[in-house]
């Protein structure tokens, strides 16, 4: 089976700062890839390039058959296949939880209101928030808001989910409830790339861990790699994390 995501020698600079310096990796169907690394190592930028939120300077990115590096890329078609969840949730504050979820299916897929509402209820059940459908985001805890954001992405039935430090703004207890939802998704066979600082989670759930350092893929391996780092940089990174 062909890869869901493949990056090949991707370069990206912001002004004079080279953020990605030849990044290559692949994500197979149903694979869960955890990208770890220090701040500024380029991991979030790599994730944003995959979703065309940033354009690459050189190199190739293919996502679910879309050539993301191609200037003629159909971004809306790409986004129909890729869901992304952000660190700051980015829910729409003036809409209820259900309306947040229904917006894209009704706008993008021309789904009827009633059908969209049913869909919203089913994805909310998956993240354990059925009873919050008619609440507004500000009435929810951070963990609940993040689960709604995940549900909102799931409603578009993406083939790939991207998670950009989704638990970084949460305390340990709320982090746990969000990670459980992500673990369920992984078990359900969703292809996922997560940029994370949760090493225990990466070790347990990821089928592949990618350690980024200075804009490059420094070390790759299964979750167990974190117990037996091969490079000095990963050893230091893991050590400082403790």
């Amino acid at each position: 089976m062909s890869a869901v995501v493949s990056l090949s020698n991707v370069h990206k600079s912001f002004g004079a700062v080279q953020v990605l310096r030849g990044v290559s990796f692949e994500v197979g169907p149903g694979e869960v890839v955890a990208v770890i690394g220090a701040s500024g190592s380029g991991k979030s930028t790599a994730l944003r390039c995959i979703n065309a939120l940033e354009t690459v300077d050189s190199g190739e990115i293919t996502v679910c058959g879309h050539k993301v590096h191609d200037p003629a890329l159909d971004r809306r078609a790409l986004r129909r296949d890729v869901g992304i969840v952000f660190q700051s949730y980015n829910l729409f504050p003036h809409l209820t939880v259900a309306q947040n979820i229904m917006l894209a299916p009704t706008c993008v897929k021309d789904m009827g209101k009633a059908e969209a509402r049913k869909l919203a209820e089913s994805v909310l059940a998956r993240v354990g928030l059925s009873e919050k459908a008619d609440n507004y985001p500000e009435q929810l805890s951070g963990g609940q808001q993040q689960r709604v954001a995940i549900a909102r992405s799931l409603a578009m039935q993406p083939k790939l989910m991207l998670f950009d430090e989704v638990t970084s703004a949460l305390d340990p207890q709320l982090t746990g409830e969000v990670l459980r939802v992500m673990e369920d998704l992984a078990r359900g066979g969703m292809s996922m790339i997560l940029v994370t600082h949760e090493m225990a989670f990466a070790r347990k759930v990821a089928s592949k861990v990618i350690f980024m350092h200075q804009g490059k893929v420094w070390e790759t391996g299964p979750g167990a790699m974190l117990d037996d780092p091969q490079t000095q940089e990963l050893r230091e990174f893991l050590h400082n994390g403790l």
């Binding site: 979703n51 939120l53 971004r75 809306r76 986004r79 129909r80 890729v82 869901g83 992304i84 952000f86 700051s88 980015n90 829910l91 729409f92 504050p93 003036h94 917006l103 894209a104 706008c107 993008v108 909102r152 992405s153 578009m156």
Partner: peptide
Amino acid sequence: KSQLEAAECLGLTRTQTYWHVIVRP
């Protein structure tokens, strides 16, 4: 700006984003 990104990533068009995510709130 993050609200725009969220709308963009959900596949909304510019006009839809403008109306639902920017102008109304």
